[in-house]
Amino acid sequence: MSANIENFPGTPLSQADFDEGKILTTHWKPKLEYGWDAGVAISRYLAELKNGRLIGIKCNRCRRTVVPPRVVCEWCWEPMEAWVYLEDTGTVNTFSICYIRWDATRAKEPQIPAVIEIDGASRGAGILHLLDEVNADDVTIGMKVQAVWKPAEERSGSITDIKYFRPT
């Protein structure tokens, strides 16, 4: 069927059609602001970040320790109750060198987001964070890193209480 059709429907527009007002449009700028409950597990996680510590949680069935903590083990469907303090060191599981910001505009300085497997948690259990104090070209998967914390008085109970991770 598609072989016999020359004109598929659809009217493509160019930027000029908008800029020159060739077509009519309406615009809406909603105010979409939210207050998300951090929940039981993440509230504790944030409170411990404020104390300058990373905390995970262990499943008593599969013996897995995960971070960020959660109230239920998604593997076993069992409540998780055993809190475990973790190290603030870890291993780079994967990383990127990012030149664009959230809205797809160009950033001046690249950032290095990474998944970091945290020491004390089970193998493969990592968190998303940033790397710094390292040349982007020198970052490797498997590299050992350590958290760089904000001073205690500046910490607010946020993942950004860790400024970034740096090579050990």
């Binding site: 809406w28 909603p30 602001e33 939210y34 207050g35 998300w36 409950d37 951090a38 944030l46 809205d103």
Partner: peptide, 10 residues
């Protein structure tokens, strides 16, 4: 703990 944020779209 409540975390505030938005959905930055128009």
């Amino acid at each position: 703990k409540v975390w505030y944020g938005n959905l930055p779209i128009e």
